[in-house]
C-alpha cells in the first residue's frame, strides 16, 4: 500500500451516507492499509461505511444546529495533535468538505490540494491529479511537508463499491472549545422542491446557456428535459444572470455531471462549464458559433440557432410520444 492510514470525512443526510463519501472510500481502501472515517452524522453510519471499507468511525458530537466546519476541524486537529494522525485526509469538494478543510489547514498549518479527480502514487506519497484549462491539462501535485496531506476530491471521480466489510467500530472525538469560531448556528432549513430527476443522478441532462438570449427561453430547455425525462441544467452565465437558481449550475462551480447523454443548448463551452460535463458519455451541442469550444467535446454538434433547432426538436419528440 502507498500509505498506512487515511481518514475520510463522511457526510450523511438522515443517516444515509453521501455518494461522494462512498466514492472516496472506494479509492481510499486501494491506497491505504487502514481507512477510518470522521463524521458528525453519528454512530448510525458505522454499518454503511464499514461495508465500504472503513474500520473505524470517529464521531464528532454536539454539532446539532451548528455549521460543521469549525467543530469537525477542531476535533480532527485535537486528535492529530494528541498523536493520532493519519497520513492523509480526504474530503469531498462539498459545502462541508471545503469548510472543514479550510479550518483544519490553518489549525495544523498544512496546505490543501483541491479539485482532485484522481490520486496517484509518487515516490511513496500520494499526488493529487487536478484538471486545469477545462480539463485539457492534468497537473499532479504532492506535498513536501512533514504534515498530514489534505486533499479535496471532486464528486464522481471514483466509482463507489462495497467491500463487504463489517460494521466499523465507533470512537468519539472530543471537540475543543471553539470560541467565536463556533458561533454560527442554523435557525431553520428550507428544501427547494424540484420535480424530475436530480442533476447528480439523471441519465440525461439538458442544459441551457447565454445563447438562449433571454430568461423566458429557458422554458425550451425545461420542455426538452421533460420529454427526455432529463434533469435541466445551466451554465454559470445564466445562473449569474439570475435566470435559474444556483442548484441548476453545471461546472467547476456547481455540479459535476456524468450522464449517459448531455445536451448543451446555447452554451459556448467555457472552461468553467467543460470541467463539469466533459465526462458525459455522449454530448450533443447546439450553438450558433462554429468556433465554440463546446464542439471540441461534442459527439454531435449542430451549428445553428437554438431558437430554431429546439422548437423543431421538441415538436418532433412530441409527435413521437
Amino acid at each position: 500500500m502507498t500509505v498506512s492510514k487515511i481518514w475520510v470525512l463522511a457526510e450523511a443526510t438522515d443517516g444515509k451516507v453521501a455518494t461522494t463519501t462512498l466514492e472516496i472510500l472506494a479509492k481510499a481502501r486501494q491506497l491505504a492499509d487502514t481507512v477510518e472515517v470522521v463524521t458528525a452524522a453519528g454512530a448510525e453510519i458505522a454499518a454503511e461505511v464499514g461495508a465500504h471499507g472503513a474500520t473505524k468511525v470517529f464521531t464528532v458530537g454536539g454539532t446539532d444546529g451548528k455549521l460543521l466546519g469549525a467543530p469537525i476541524a477542531g476535533a480532527m486537529a485535537a486528535a492529530i495533535e494528541s498523536g493520532n494522525a493519519p497520513d492523509v485526509i480526504l474530503m469531498a469538494t462539498s459545502y462541508t468538505g471545503r469548510d472543514v478543510a479550510g479550518r483544519l489547514s490553518v489549525k495544523i498549518d498544512a496546505p490543501v490540494i483541491t479539485n482532485v479527480v484522481d490520486l496517484v502514487e509518487s515516490d511513496g506519497r500520494l499526488a493529487g491529479v487536478v484538471p486545469i484549462f477545462g480539463g485539457v491539462t492534468d497537473v499532479s501535485t504532492k506535498f513536501t511537508t512533514d504534515n498530514v496531506d489534505i486533499f479535496l476530491i471532486r464528486p464522481k471521480s471514483f466509482a463507489a463499491e462495497e467491500s463487504g466489510g463489517a460494521a466499523a467500530s465507533v470512537e468519539e472525538l472530543t471537540v475543543p472549545d471553539l470560541g467565536a469560531t463556533g458561533a454560527a448556528v442554523v435557525t431553520s432549513r428550507f428544501v427547494e422542491e424540484k420535480t424530475g430527476p436530480s442533476l447528480d443522478e439523471a441519465a440525461v441532462v439538458v442544459s441551457g446557456g447565454r445563447g438562449l438570449g433571454e430568461k423566458e427561453n429557458y422554458q425550451l430547455v425545461e420542455d426538452l428535459a421533460k420529454l427526455l425525462q432529463a434533469a435541466p441544467g445551466a451554465s454559470r452565465a445564466i445562473v449569474d444572470a439570475g435566470w435559474v437558481p444556483y442548484s441548476y449550475q453545471v461546472g467547476q462551480t456547481g455540479k459535476v455531471v456524468k450522464p449517459s447523454l448531455y445536451i448543451a443548448a446555447g452554451i459556448s463551452g467555457a472552461t468553467q462549464h467543460l470541467v463539469g460535463m466533459k465526462g458525459s458519455k455522449n454530448i450533443i451541442a447546439i450553438n450558433k458559433d462554429a468556433e465554440a469550444p463546446i464542439f471540441a467535446v461534442s459527439d454531435l454538434g449542430i451549428v445553428g440557432d437554438v431558437h430554431k433547432v429546439l422548437p423543431k426538436l421538441i415538436e418532433a419528440l412530441q409527435a413521437r410520444s
Binding site: A110, P111, I113, S122, A127, P131, G135, V136, T137, D138, V139, S140, T141, K142, F143, T144, T145, N147, K278, I283, A290, F295, A296, V297, S298, D299, L300, G301, I302, V303, G304
Partner: peptide, 20 residues
C-alpha cells in the same frame, strides 16, 4: 509545501460530427 510532479495532456475526446 507542495511540488508539481507531472503536467500531462488529459485524455481528449474523439472529435464528433459537426454540421451546419
Amino acid at each position: 509545501g507542495q511540488e508539481i510532479v507531472l503536467v500531462a495532456q488529459a485524455e481528449s475526446r474523439a472529435g464528433g460530427t459537426i454540421i451546419e
